[in-house]
Design a protein around this nucleic acid. Sequence first.
DNA 1: CATGAATGAGTATTCATTCAT
DNA 2: AATGAATGAATACTCATTCAT
Lengths: 206, 206, 206, 206
Amino acid sequence: MRKTPRQQRSREMVNRLLDATAATLAERGLDHTTTNHIAERAGVSIGSLYQYFPDKNALVEALLERMAEEASARFRYRAERADFSQMDLRSVASLAIAYGMQRMSADPVVRELVQNWNRIPIRKLLDPLERFFLVMAQPYFLHRYRDYPVQNLEAKLYVLINAVLFTVIHFHEQENPVIRQDQLIQTLTDMIVGLLEAPQPASPNG
Amino acid sequence: MRKTPRQQRSREMVNRLLDATAATLAERGLDHTTTNHIAERAGVSIGSLYQYFPDKNALVEALLERMAEEASARFRYRAERADFSQMDLRSVASLAIAYGMQRMSADPVVRELVQNWNRIPIRKLLDPLERFFLVMAQPYFLHRYRDYPVQNLEAKLYVLINAVLFTVIHFHEQENPVIRQDQLIQTLTDMIVGLLEAPQPASPNG
Amino acid sequence: MRKTPRQQRSREMVNRLLDATAATLAERGLDHTTTNHIAERAGVSIGSLYQYFPDKNALVEALLERMAEEASARFRYRAERADFSQMDLRSVASLAIAYGMQRMSADPVVRELVQNWNRIPIRKLLDPLERFFLVMAQPYFLHRYRDYPVQNLEAKLYVLINAVLFTVIHFHEQENPVIRQDQLIQTLTDMIVGLLEAPQPASPNG
Amino acid sequence: MRKTPRQQRSREMVNRLLDATAATLAERGLDHTTTNHIAERAGVSIGSLYQYFPDKNALVEALLERMAEEASARFRYRAERADFSQMDLRSVASLAIAYGMQRMSADPVVRELVQNWNRIPIRKLLDPLERFFLVMAQPYFLHRYRDYPVQNLEAKLYVLINAVLFTVIHFHEQENPVIRQDQLIQTLTDMIVGLLEAPQPASPNG
DNA sequence: CATGAATGAGTATTCATTCAT
DNA sequence: AATGAATGAATACTCATTCAT
C-alpha cells in the first residue's frame, strides 16, 4: 500500500505547520503572523502550506483543535494521578485555577489565541475543554448528588468556565491589576464554590 | 464672542466623527474599519478627520470615553429611578444583567469594542464603569454591612465585573449557545449572590 | 496718507514670515517644512501667509534674496575694514574661504538651503554673491593687471566660485571627510592662486 | 541545476527594476518618483518590487552602485584604448572633462542623482569614481614624481573631483550660463593643471 | 507534489492650497 | 484684511493567495 507513508508524511507536514503557526503566533502575535512567516518557519514553501490548509484561518483552527486535544490529555493525566473524588470542591477548584494560570503564563500561544478569541473560532478550543470538565466533574457531582443536588449543572459550568477563563486572561493582560494573584485565585474559588455548593432552593430555572 | 460657535462646530465635528467611527465599527468590525471609511461616513474629508484626531487610535479612544460617559449617565439615571437600596441583591443583580445584555444586543458598537478588548485601550471604557458600579453599590453594602459584612469587596467586585462582562459578551457572540439567555441571567445572578451573600468564614485572604 | 503704515505693516509681516521660514528650515529641514509650520511659527494664520506669498516656493525665494542681501552687506563691511588691496591673493583667498566656512557652520539655514540647491532657485542666493565677488575683486585685479594680466577673468571667477562653494558644502555634509579642514582650505587656496596667478601663455581661449 | 535560471531571472528582474528606476528618475525627478511608478514602468507589480528591494532607498542605492560599476568599466575601457601615459596632463584633463560633460548631457539620470546628492548615499557613486581616478592617475604621477613631486595628492584629488563635478553639474543646470562650454572646459583644465603641476614650495601642509 | 515568484487591492497619514466667514 | 477649517490627491509599503514551472 502506498497510502500509509503518504498519510504519515502528510501528518508530519501538518504538524510541522501547526508548530510553526504556534511559534509564530507566540513570537509575533496574531496580527503580525503571516502565512509566509509560518511556511518559512516550518521550512516549507508557501505553496505547500496552501496544499494542506485552504487558508490562514484553517491553520489557526487546526491549531486550536490540536491544542484542545493536548489540553484534554494533560488534564486527564493529572486527573488520574490526583484522586479528585477524594478532595473537596474548594481544593479542586483552587488547584485547577492555579494550574490553569500557570499554564497560561507558560504558554504565550494560549494567551495570544484567547486574547483574540473574537477573531478566531475559539470554541474549537473551549468546547472540548468545557465538555472535558463536565465529564471530569461528573463523578464528583454524582457522588454528592443525593445530598446536594446541583441544578442546572450545564449552565453553571458554562458560566464558570467563561467567567474564570476571561477573568484570568484579563488579569494576566493588565499591567497593574488592582488585586493580587492570590486574591484572584481565592475569590474565583469562592465564586465557584458559592455557585456550585450553596443550596439554591430559590432557583426555579430550567 | 467668536469662540463659542467655533467650539460648537468643533464639537459637532468631533461628534460626527465619533458617530461615524461607531457606525463603521459596528458595520465592518475593527479590523476592516479604516480612517477613510470613517471620514466618508462622517461626510467629511480624510484631511479633516486628521485635523481633529491625530490617528486612528485616538478616534477609538475618544469613542470609548464618550461611551463610558454615556453609559455612566444612563446607569445613574436608572439608579435614581429605581430605588436599588430597597431591593434585595438578587433583584438588583438580575436587573442589572438583563439591562446590560439588552444594551449589548442593542449596541453592536459595544460588542465590537469589547470583543477587541485586547487591541484597544478598553480600560477607558471599563474603568469608569467599574468605578461607577463600585460607587453605586457602596450604599447597598454599607447598609447591609452590619448583618452581612462582605470581606474583600474590591477583589470580589473585580472578579464579578470581569466574569459577568466577558461571559455575557461571549454568550452574545455565539451563534448556538449551549444555554438559553434566561438560564444565563439566572446563573450569573446566582453566582453574584453566591459570592457576595454567602457567609465566608473560611476565607482568610488579605 | 494711509499708505505708509500699511506698507510698513506689510513689510513687518513679510519679515516675520521670512524669519519663520528660516527658523523652520533650520529646525526641520526643507523636506519637513510646511507652510502651516511657517505660519504658526510666524504667529500668523495660514491664510495670511498666502496673502503675502503666492506659494511655498515664493517664500523660499524671498528668503534667499534677503539672505543674499545680508551676505553682501556683511562682506562689504568686512571688505571695508580689511584693506584687501594691500594683501596678496593667497591671503585674501585663504581668509575668504575660512570666513565662508565659518559662516556655513554657524548658519544652519544656509546649509539647509545650499544642500537643496537643486530644489530651490539657488541662483537667487548665488548670483548676487557671484556678482559681488566679481565687483569686489575687480579693483584688486585691475591693480595688478599690468604685472599679471588675468585672461578670462569672468570664466575663472565663475569656475572658482562654483568650485569652492560646492566643494566646501560637500565637505561640510560629509560625516567622515577623507581630508582635514585645514587641508581643504590650503588646497582650495592653492587652486585659486594656481588659476589666477600662474602665467597662462598657452590659453588661447576667447 | 536549478539555481542558475532562477538567479538569472532574479538578476533580470533587478535590472529591469533598476532600469525603470533610472527612467522614472530621469523623467519625473527624485521627488516625484514613486515606487508604484517604478514598478509600473518595469512592467512588474508593486509587490514584486518589494520582493527584490526592501524600500525605495535601496532601489536608488542599488542604481547608484550599478552606475558606478558601469562608469568604471567605461573609463577603464577608454583608458585602455588611449594611452594616457603618453599624453600630458593638460590633454588628459581636458579630454576627461569633455567626456564627462558629454556623458552628463547624455544621461539625465546622472544629473538627477547628483543634483540630489544630499538626499541619497551619493558616495556610493562618487567613491568608486574617486578611487578609479586615483588608480588611473597613478602611473602618470609615478612617472612625473621624481621631477615634480605632488604634495598632498589625496587632498588635491578630493578637491578637484568635487570642484569639477559640481561646477559642471551646476553649469548644466543653468539655463543661461554666463560662460560658454568651451570656456568652462578650458578653465577647468587650467585649474587642474595649475593645482597639480605648478611648483608649490610654499605649501607647508601636512 | 513542491516551489516561490508574482500579484495588487488595501491602509494610514501628509500637506499645499482654497474659500466661506 | 485676516482667519483657519476643510480639502483630497498622493505615497510607501503589506500580505493572503495563485499558478506556472
